[in-house]
Write a protein that binds this DNA or RNA. Structure first.
Lengths: 327, 327
DNA sequence: ATGGGCTATGTTAGCGTCAACATGGATGCT
DNA sequence: AGCATCCATGTTGACGCTAACATAGCCCAT
């Protein structure tokens, strides 16, 4: 910086002002400084700035696992949005033990200005230990809470879309292949399913529960199909994939004998057999809103936001009118 | 730090020595300092340390996209390995334009100590602009190059495994559903396929090319099946998924009429219909080796490493002996 | 023309840490 | 006993940056 200053014939402070786009700089001086910077390949030193200002221009992302396709997509959206805003993103995964406190500890050590917490960790975040004091937080898919910002997908609304679609096709009721206990998204999707069933005057059968993996979807769907279900709403696409295989193995044709709806609209869903009707979640919007809420909070002290991102039904070939004769 | 020093009745320098595990500290003093640190909730200030030492204890990860399941898994492995070594991980994605230079620019600005570059960006990295001078690099899935460390999966070996498996089942030859041009992994898998075919005395038919997505796999496989293939080796599982659908739509039974092998062993592959025979890639090993190579280079000045991680064949139900009468 | 306010720029100091050197006491060797 | 070593610890200064204050020149209203 001193070199730049000398070359441009100004003080270091003026260089700093140029770098930080301060309005208090003569245009002529500014361009002289800019020229010097690019000639010398000057790059501001982030650590020094962080030391001085107390802010690192870095946000953290806490995620339980990246095995789920949804989390990966969110991560990408978050990374892009953060980069656009000039923030670095550091990723912290929960260990196998899912120790949120340890994750926050690591974030605090790295001195991030704030953090985004992805869904699965949510239940644990709600416990007493809401991170380190002073660390701004935005939690994705969590019940509303003033202690941090919340950005969520409209899971319940999406579930309602799925159920209404199925009921309108003449199915007597819809069975639910639910996500794991402790997941906010799973609970909300289940709630939406339940409400839509009640609203439609249909019976509410017991749920079968999986853990988001296709293997668990296969196992749980087998039970449902055994019980004679004609319409299955799976809490995510991967479990729907398992359900499709379960149907095939028990000799049910999809969609003629049984209809299946997923949730997420993962890239592969269009190539499941048959192509899956599903609820599309807008991961990009979710990620960029989360980043926007966090950074607005950091930079402008904006109060904790609460936002809901809508979903939409994508009809493909895994759903059809109910079989005419009851099975 | 000053507070800790005072409380423990020592100087700041001694606290520093304790934090950095210097041997030059009396055990009794050390424990006194440690007590003071935990009582005061002291946490060393990373930015200050970075300013002083010139090292940030942070590594970068450059990735083109996280849409591919493999990349996500790698990212997770890298994140965990970095955390274990006490390094933070910051993720940089390539924009839609795939601008590697810009990505390196951002990394340099953040002052990472080194970076790992994931596969797809490889071809571009090899161009003149090998990052910023002084930035240590480990590239995953790249041809050997002294300018940076390389860690790769044995793609060609895996492909050979797939082809040998198929030939041993009596298939006259194996068609290849290749990955995109410009991908090192795709090129290597194709090479392995070609070599194994030649070694087995089988004809080498022209390849059909996709872009890793299931949709592209569907399209490309349709062509292959039209041509009467009985054995297809897809360059990844997602394209294999597309191939399975293509087979179904053209009335071929898998595995009775046509056998399909994938690559990666993605979590869902076991629930494809039929469960997919595939080549398992050890993403965790790949990620942790890459981190180890990078950090060894940073800390110990170890020379650029070159490592290959083996694969293995996972036989499921998508492969069977060739149909007895030629199709 | 004089003071007040405004603009462009400079000066000073310190953010938390650790490398380098300094110190003082204990130990060991001749 | 005398001197070289070694060990545990302390002191000093600087890493690169920017907040806060300081200064000098200018314009404008009175």
């Amino acid at each position: 910086m001193a070199d730049v200053a000398e070359r441009a014939g100004v003080s270091g402070q003026t260089v700093s002002r140029v770098v930080n786009a301060s309005p208090r700089v003569d245009p002529e001086t500014r361009s002289r400084v800019e020229a010097a910077m690019s000639e010398l390949g000057y790059r501001p030193h982030r650590a020094a700035r962080a030391l001085r200002t107390g802010r690192t221009q870095t946000i953290g992302l806490v995620v339980s696992t990246l095995a789920s396709v949804g989390n990966s997509r969110m991560l990408q959206a978050v990374a892009d949005a953060a980069a656009t805003r000039g923030y670095a993103l550091t990723v912290v995964t929960l260990g196998a033990d899912g120790d949120v406190a340890a994750a926050f500890e690591r974030l605090a050590e790295q001195g991030v200005d704030g953090a985004i917490v992805l869904n699965e960790a949510t239940a644990r975040v709600r416990g007493a230990d809401v991170g380190v004091p002073g660390l701004r937080l935005v939690v994705v898919d969590s019940p509303r809470d003033d202690r941090f910002g919340v950005v969520e997908t409209d899971h319940a609304g999406g579930a309602r879309l799925a159920v209404e679609h199925l009921l309108s096709l003449g199915h007597a009721t819809v069975h639910h292949l639910a996500g794991p206990d402790g997941s906010f998204a799973a609970a909300e999707r289940e709630r939406g399913w339940r409400e839509a069933l009640s609203a439609g005057g249909a019976a509410v059968p017991p749920v079968a529960r999986g853990d988001w993996t296709s293997a668990s979807g296969f196992a749980a769907a087998s039970v449902l199909l055994e019980a004679g279900s004609t319409a299955v709403f799976a809490a995510n696409d991967q479990m729907a994939l398992g359900a499709l295989r379960a149907a095939a193995e028990t000799g049910r044709a999809v969609p003629d004998d049984v209809s299946v709806v997923g949730f997420d609209d993962v890239a592969d869903a269009a190539d499941y057999r048959p192509p899956l009707t599903t609820i599309r979640q807008d991961f990009d919007a979710l990620g960029s809103r989360a980043v926007a809420a966090l950074i607005d909070g950091i930079e402008a002290g904006a109060p904790a936001a609460f936002e809901t991102v809508p979903t939409r039904l994508v009809v493909r070939e895994s759903t059809a009118p109910a079989p005419s004769t009851g099975r």
